[in-house]
Amino acid sequence: MPRIVFTPNVQRHLACPPAHVDGDTVRAALDAYFRAHPRSRSYVLDEQDALRPHMVIFVDNEPINDRVKLSDALRPSSELFVMQALSGGSR
């Protein structure tokens, strides 16, 4: 079962604990996580369900390719790291 880990920087705003979730794509895994942690959705995705512009998701240490449909495939052993991009931090 894939495992999701969130940037420690988001924990200041809300708790996003690591979790194992079902899903064979990034979208499916995130949806499973958000069902258990609904507030965290808007911190990662915009209202069109795309990855926010200044967020990045690594799957097994590589950034995902599909930031809109989140269709990148996962293996049962995959690890997802939901991180801040360094862009967007100058506010």
């Binding site: 988001v10 911190y43 990662v44 915009d46 926010r52 801040q84 967007g88 931090g89 506010r91």
Partner: peptide, 9 residues
Amino acid sequence: LDLGHFGVK
């Protein structure tokens, strides 16, 4: 709030 990474809140 306009959180640059995490959106508006």
